[in-house]
């Protein structure tokens, strides 16, 4: 989806109830373009999430973003048998998987998202996963799917 006309107000409204503010707008603009951005320090190269305006390592304010390719490993894995309501999430049909994934190309930087197209045995700590996207309220949201591996 190309979103050159997406105003700040549109972004805030369409990603509610997520907190889109001055610090995180660039992160969610990335989502709208199916691009997973993480904060990057142009002085020392440090990368981190969530978006904050200063590099915690060198205190540079010269921060921009880099786009992650999205391959990673499940670091934390939770199955929600009940939880907050969301469009497309029906806890009565089975638990909803929520994983925290650490990116292979940015060790220590993690994103929490659901996992799609997974068999039960894929929903475990240590599973290799890749980034994908799904739509909610007409807007792209990140998710992971098990990486095809030679079995």
């Amino acid at each position: 989806m190309s979103t050159p006309t997406l105003t700040d107000a549109d972004l805030v409204e369409r990603y509610a109830p997520l907190t889109v503010d001055k610090d995180t707008a660039d992160f969610y603009r990335g989502w709208a373009e199916r691009e997973l951005r993480i904060r990057h320090c142009t002085e020392c190269g440090h990368t981190w999430l969530p978006f904050r305006p200063i590099c915690p390592r060198c205190w540079s304010f010269a921060v921009d973003h880099v786009v992650v390719q999205g391959d990673g490993t499940v670091h934390l894995m939770m199955l929600l048998h009940q939880g907050p309501p969301a469009p497309g999430v029906d806890y009565t049909t089975g638990p909803y998987p929520v994983a925290t994934v650490e990116f292979a190309d940015h060790p220590g930087v993690r994103l929490t998202a659901t996992i799609v197209d997974a068999r039960p045995e894929d929903l475990v700590v240590g599973r290799a996963v890749s980034l994908t996207w799904f739509e909610r309220n007409g807007m792209p949201h990140p998710a992971f799917r098990p990486t095809e591996v030679t079995r």
Partner: peptide, 15 residues
Amino acid sequence: QAVPESIAMAPAYAA
């Protein structure tokens, strides 16, 4: 109002 795809607050302990 939280979303399911988050481990903020209590869900962090399950994760």
